[in-house]
Design a protein around this nucleic acid. Sequence first.
DNA 1: CTTGACCCTGAAGTTGCTATAAGGTTTAGT
DNA 2: ACTAAACCTTATAGCAACTTCAGGGTCAAG
Lengths: 154, 154
Amino acid sequence: MRIGELAKGTGIDVETLRYYERVGLLQLPARQANGYRTYGQDAVERVNFIRHCRALDIGLADVRRLLDFVAHPEADCSDVNYLLDEHLVRVRAKLKSLRTLEKQLARLRTQCDADHRAADCGILQELVAAAHGEACACHQSGGNASLSNRKDGE
Amino acid sequence: MRIGELAKGTGIDVETLRYYERVGLLQLPARQANGYRTYGQDAVERVNFIRHCRALDIGLADVRRLLDFVAHPEADCSDVNYLLDEHLVRVRAKLKSLRTLEKQLARLRTQCDADHRAADCGILQELVAAAHGEACACHQSGGNASLSNRKDGE
DNA sequence: CTTGACCCTGAAGTTGCTATAAGGTTTAGT
DNA sequence: ACTAAACCTTATAGCAACTTCAGGGTCAAG
C-alpha cells in the first residue's frame, strides 16, 4: 500500500508518517519505480503500536525503546517496567499540579464576576498582590501597583 | 540592579528574562555605559506577575493581555473573566484526559512485574495486541507479532 | 595580569508535529 | 488526447516557551 492508504488505515497523518520515518521510528519502506513509498501489513501494525504509545503520552524516544524491545524478544524486559514507572511518575506529578492549578484558577475566577473597570477587577488585584507580596507581603500601595507600562498611549 | 540579580530575586533564569524582553513581555530596560541592563523594583514586580501567571499555566500571549489590563485600569475587565474561563475549560479538559491516561498506564503496569524476557512481557504484549487488534480483533498469531525490525544484529 | 564571575548578541536546538512551496505522477472524466 | 483532481515527492519553515551554544566584552580580586 502507499502512504496515503497507510495514513487512512491508521489514522495518522501522511506528514506525520514521513516525520516518523525521518526520526527513525519507521523503517525505510520499499519504493516503487516512481519513488512512491510502499508498505506492507507490518507497517500498519508498527504505526498502530506507535499510535497507542502516543495515546498514552509516551515520548517518541521511549516509543523507540519499546519498539527495540519488541524487536528483541530475548532481551530482559525490566527496563520496560522502569520506563513505564518513570512515565507513570511523570503523569501523576502533572496530574497533581494540574489539580492544584484548577483549584487556584477556580478560586481566582470567583474574585470577579460583574462587568466593571479593570481597576476594580478582583482577579487582576489578586495577581498583582501575589506579585507584590513576593518581595514583601506588607505594603499594598493602593490600586494596581507599579506594573503598568507608563506609556499609556499605546 | 543587573539582570543576574533580577533573575535571583524572581527565580527566573537570565536567558528567560532576555527572552521575555525579546517577545515584548518586559519593557526595554535602561542600559549602563557598558551595555548591561539595569532594572528597578517595578521590574521585579512585573516578572513576579508573569511568574504567577505562568505558574497558572497561562500562555505568554494571555499574560501579555493581562499586563495590558493592569496598565489600563480604566478598561472594561470582562475580557479578564473570559480569558480565565477559557483557561479553566482547557485545564479541566486536560485534567480529565490525564486521569484516564493514568488509569490506563497503571493497568498496563500491572501486566508485568518480575524481571524476565521481553518476549514474555505482558506490557509489550498488550501494546502489540492493541496495535494488532486495530485492523482485526481476532487473529493473534502467537508471540509478539510482526513489528520487529528483522535486522536483528543492530 | 590572569582568573573567574558576570554580561552581551545572535543563532540554533528542543518536542512533536503541521504547513508551505514547488514540483512529479496517476487516475478519472470528457 | 487533454485536463483536472488527487495523489506522491523533497526541502524548508513554523508553533510554544524556552534552553543552549558560540564567540565575544567587562570587571573585581589575587
